[in-house]
Simulated assay, not measured.
Amino acid sequence: MPILQRMILSNLQSSCLAFLFCILTLTLTAQKSPSYDPVLNQNPLVSDAYKLLDVGDTEQALENFQQALSQNQDDLSARLGQAMILAELERHAEAFESYDSIVQSYPRHAFAWNGRGLAAFNMEDFDTALQSFKQATAEQPINGFFYETLAWTQMCRGDFSSAAMSAKTATLMYNRKSENSVYPQLIAYFAYLETGDLSNAHASLKYAARNKPHNRWPAPVVDYLTDTIDAGELISFVGDSAQETEAHTYIGLKLRAKQQSHLAKAHLDWVARNGDARVFEYTLARALNLQDNVALLAPKADTEAQ
């Protein structure tokens, strides 16, 4: 599932307009004396932009937000809308700049920190992403999606122990808000396998199997990992490029955990070349490929000793 869709679902909003209003006010109560109320004093251009965005007219909505910012570069409503659209359009460097400008003025705006981290993550700047996601969780700790993004970043950095802990926390926070996402348990499963903690790995997968969604994605992924279906059957459930990217990534991760490196590489290479960049798994596959290639280039201990 694309990252933006996961973010929206994690906030349980029924429309883009409601979602944007939610993120706009997410942490304003924690700010010290904001110069204006960005909701009550909203520019009509911004109000119209939200409505346009809600009906799917992204191009005109972005133009409205940019016009509003040309009138007032400190318009938080416009800046958030602009950043969201730039992220959706995969213009990640520009999205990063927009979110970064928000946190400069509103350093406790959790959603903006998370958006900044997602932009950095998509540019494969994992150090900046890590710092941003940690700040987001510090400002709003009861948010499963924020911890999930942190866990994905730690996986990409090869910090598997921390990834497992962040994924576990993500599940706890999702549960506290009566939300559900199986992805943190999938992260935890593979993170624990990487650290050799088979007991916790199996517990994570068992939890995922108990809590997988009914008859919808990513239930087939869980079925594949529990050996209920094979790789071919998993691929047969794919409905779009995002799901195809996830399927090949999880096949590759499973083969990698079984030390079938050559077969795993074929799937991860496919994702790195052809995958849908809108999903976390695309970036993870690219990062793991890089880690594995660096490991292959590293001199052997016995060679160095000679």
Rank of each mutant, 00 (worst) to 15 (best):
F146Q: 03
F146K: 00
A151F: 01
W152G: 00
T153E: 02
Q154F: 08
Q154V: 03
M155D: 11
C156E: 05
R157L: 13
G158D: 09
G158M: 13
D159L: 10
F160D: 03
A163L: 12
A163V: 10
M165V: 10
A167V: 00
K168T: 06
K168Q: 05
A170E: 04
A170W: 00
T171V: 15
T171E: 01
L172R: 14
L172H: 10
L172G: 11
Y174W: 06
Y174C: 04
Y174L: 08
N175T: 14
N175M: 15
K177L: 09
K177D: 05
S178V: 11
S178G: 04
S178F: 14
E179M: 14
S181Y: 07
V182Q: 02
V182N: 01
V182P: 01
Y183W: 11
Y183F: 14
P184K: 06
Q185Y: 12
L186S: 05
L186N: 01
A191C: 06
A191D: 01
A191Q: 03
Y192A: 07
L193S: 11
L193V: 01
L193D: 04
E194W: 02
G196I: 02
G196T: 07
G196N: 09
G196R: 11
D197N: 15
D197R: 10
L198G: 09
L198H: 09
S199R: 11
A201I: 04
A201T: 00
H202E: 14
H202D: 14
A203Q: 14
S204H: 05
L205S: 01
N211A: 07
N211D: 08
K212N: 03
H214P: 04
H214Q: 14
R216D: 07
R216C: 11
W217A: 10
W217Q: 08
P218L: 12
P218V: 12
A219W: 06
A219D: 15
A219P: 06
P220V: 04
P220W: 00
V222K: 02
V222L: 09
Y224L: 08
T226A: 09
T226M: 08
D227S: 15
I229F: 07
I229V: 13
A231T: 02
G232P: 00
E233V: 10
L234H: 06
L234V: 11
L234P: 03
S236V: 05
G239F: 05
D240N: 14
S241P: 02
A242Y: 00
Q243E: 12
E244S: 15
T245H: 00
T245K: 00
E246N: 06
E246Q: 12
A247T: 03
H248R: 14
T249A: 14
Y250Q: 05
G252N: 09
R256N: 13
R256D: 15
A257T: 07
K258S: 13
Q259E: 13
Q260K: 09
S261M: 07
H262D: 10
A264Q: 01
K265Q: 13
K265C: 05
A266F: 07
A266D: 06
H267D: 09
L268H: 01
L268V: 05
D269K: 05
W270R: 03
V271S: 04
A272D: 09
R273K: 12
G275Y: 04
G275E: 03
R278A: 12
